[in-house]
Design a protein around this nucleic acid. Structure first.
Lengths: 205, 205
DNA sequence: TGTATTTTAATACCCACGTATGGGATAGGG
DNA sequence: CCCTATCCCATACGTGGGTATTAAAATACA
């Protein structure tokens, strides 16, 4: 048998290269040749692990979504597990952390956000590319809604709130603030302050 | 002197063609040749009115921004002019209308939103393209904040709100909902319902 | 050590894009 | 009527992109 390499690892390595290029120059400028150079391999090697660019992009978007989701899930886990009230931090401060994970506050998250935005633009034309992201989005929404409901029962958030709508509102707001930051009309500090303000307004008196 | 053509009109015509193509297939697929066909002219004619594609895109983004802003400004004008309380509709319902103007609820607004998103992605690389949009954004934010303050004084909105933050929150939320709709995770009806819910939560008891 | 098979590299292909060019059509002013 | 500047078109060029092809290198197992 011949040389055996970990395909998944290689694909991750290539996806990370795409992420770095995108962070610097945008996804449009991520050509297969540039990707190869950034990954330190040849064009042929890239082709070996991805049959087409479309397949590569599909992997990149899935990988990026997983990265973001994983960080948030880690936060959920740290909150106290399967829904009991044993968490050590408040729901409000957790949601603030969640927001900071989603907003483009550093180079890494800026690159991720750029990938996500770029695929958002292509979503209408190529729905198959973004399917995994839609799942992640639904999952996140449900979890946030659950969390809000639980915090209401615990007396941390106002009882008259509609958990489902508040979840949509909060996540949409974070998404919008992320766009604002990328666009250059809002700086990260202002964005986080707005999140803090919004969450304070949801807190029980 | 030779034939005289209204340049501005022609450029608008071409920009509208780009808008239609973008609405159907995305800005990436708006090639100069396709644009010429869609506008019913030749490639040479397009080149005659725009020296380069970059110049064309700059015009398209400015044109699109103006279209959106114009519709919202018309709404502000109808509200009662320079800030007096003579408006005939409530601030709440006006903000709802504003949201419906900004959300991609029909083909026209979907196309506009696609253009805006596409340029948002390029903003980091080509800030000069999006400069006019940033102005419009600042203007809109200030106006909404003013409006909220005024509505508080009129007793329509809760007095404890921070007008500036609420303006940021509301506009970010609308932007996020727009992204959700384009992405396919939210339908227009849900989005408008969330806007309505959010605005209700701002209303005085 | 041989060998089969994966991995890597080099390079050729073809197409679509933005741009450049040259000429022809059009029409207002002398 | 003609001339000149504008407008428009057809077509050519060069580049860069994804893809395809081919062969060399590397390596685990017999």
């Amino acid at each position: 048998m011949p040389k055996k390499v970990d395909h998944d690892e290689r694909r991750r390595h290539i996806a990370e290269a795409v992420l770095r290029i995108t962070g610097r120059h945008g996804l449009d400028h991520a050509t297969l040749r540039d990707i190869a150079v950034e990954a330190g391999i040849s064009l042929g090697a890239v082709q070996h692990y991805f049959r087409s660019k479309d397949e590569l992009l599909q992997h990149v978007i899935a990988h990026t979504g997983e990265q973001v989701t994983a960080r948030i899930m880690a936060g959920f886990a740290g909150l106290g597990g399967t829904g009991d009230t044993g968490g050590t931090i408040s729901v409000g401060s957790f949601l603030r952390v969640m927001a900071s994970e989603m907003l483009p506050l550093d180079a890494r998250r800026r690159a991720e956000r750029r990938v996500l935005q770029a695929f958002g633009v292509r979503a209408a034309d190529a729905p198959h590319l973004t399917e995994p992201l839609r799942e992640g989005n639904d999952w996140l929404h449900d979890r946030v809604a659950e969390l809000i409901g639980q915090a209401q029962r615990d007396g941390e958030l106002r009882p008259e709130l509609h958990a489902g709508h508040e979840s949509i509102t909060l996540l949409a707001m974070i998404e919008g603030l992320a766009s604002d930051i990328m666009f250059g009309v809002r700086d990260p500090g202002q964005a986080m302050e707005s999140v803090r303000y919004h969450l304070d307004r949801l807190a029980a008196r």
